[in-house]
Nucleic acid binder design. Structure first.
Lengths: 207, 207
DNA sequence: TGATTTCCATACCGTTCCGCATAAAATAGA
DNA sequence: TCTATTTTATGCGGAACGGTATGGAAATCA
């Protein structure tokens, strides 16, 4: 049973819970991030969050529901980060470079090995067998494409002449995809930077 | 124990095996392709190949070894297909479009849902926890980059002036990456084509 | 034909999986 | 202090997991 959040003033009746749901969700996401959905057991999640299985079940439901919650959280965080980066002032080239640099830093994080993007690195595999995951990923990609396209459309004089912002927006997302995949296979910072610099050079090419 | 392949003339002593190892390997790959490594059980593999577990074990070793064999096979097939496509005559633009069209067709195949690229769709997830998989993927990406770069370098007059074939080669691979990921999330043929046409337009842009 | 070699099918092993049932612990209100 | 209510802890149970032992079936050589 999912916890009932006290709507108005906080009046918890019984024993207060000894954990922070947002923190636990982040720790569960980190566990999934390392090994993917199928290879992460409830014991792994329990160890990562410090909660035992009944508490996990009470807070988030079963393993699949917990995973979907981490995906949704990652989706909103990723979009918020992108919107923030796209709203920064300065020339388009610098805006894009800063976004990709930030993404690469996240993708290269990880305790033992680089983790890449959480969505690309774990949800893409589940996407074939699970329509729910597939739908979420499709939404995220569409939102990324649209966010990039809107920003590109706002700077037509910094794009190649006659370019279609929509199409270039998809290419901007494609750069994120390749960074996510390559980071998870261990690519170092220099090679990632070379790739997104080349991509930005194509998108922001003025003759 | 792995089967000893008769080296010279075929002199099988005892009962000949009733299956074709190459076919079984392809069927096992299809099973992994759908659900990924961790979510595919030995029962799934047994059903997909028609072999029972002891035969599977005798032919390919344990589950991990079988998966590595499918990865290696996919690697060689993918590289051979790319080299073949790159060696086709005609303008660079047409060569690249044909390659991406062929890749999209493969990525969109699948009985229930589109499967994307086998390596991207299944091995990227395992890459963090498994150095062996990680190394193989890193090799493949490097080989793809190099193959594209070599072909691009052979047509400098079809590239943007002053462009670096090496950097553009990485972008050519990036287009494959985004096609692989988006196909696995259900993108239709038109949207995939729009993406690779935009990408080819950037790579083959003459002012 | 008989012996030998290899393949195949059944069944089992110990482990791990996910989910839940039950009981103890901790707080608020009476 | 005592009761009600919610969270935590322990541990169980049925199922599925990966891997293997064992015995029978099939095909070839002598």
């Amino acid at each position: 049973m999912v916890q009932k959040e006290p709507s108005g003033s906080a009046k918890p009746r019984g024993r207060p819970r000894g954990y922070d749901p947002a923190t636990a969700l982040r720790q569960a996401r980190d566990a999934f991030w390392r090994n993917g959905f199928s290879a992460t057991s409830l014991d792994d999640l329990s160890a990562a969050t410090g909660l035992n299985r009944p508490s996990l079940y009470g807070a988030f439901g079963d393993k699949k529901a917990l995973y979907m919650a981490t995906l949704q959280r990652s989706r909103t965080e990723m979009l918020a980060g992108l919107e923030l980066g796209l709203s920064a002032p300065g020339p388009l080239r610098e805006v894009l470079l800063a976004i990709y640099a930030g993404a690469s830093a996240i993708y290269r994080s990880g305790s033992e090995a680089q983790r890449g993007c959480f969505l690309i690195g774990t949800a893409v595999t589940e996407s074939v067998a699970d329509p729910e995951v597939r739908k979420l990923l499709d939404q995220v990609f569409g939102e990324l494409d649209a966010a990039f396209a809107a920003r590109l459309a706002a700077s037509p004089d910094e794009l190649p002449p006659g370019a279609d912002p929509q199409a270039l927006g998809s290419m901007a997302t494609a750069i994120l995809h390749t960074l996510a995949v390559r980071a998870r296979t261990g690519a170092d910072e220099a090679s990632l930077r070379a790739i997104y610099e080349a991509g930005v050079g194509l998108i922001c090419a003025r003759p």
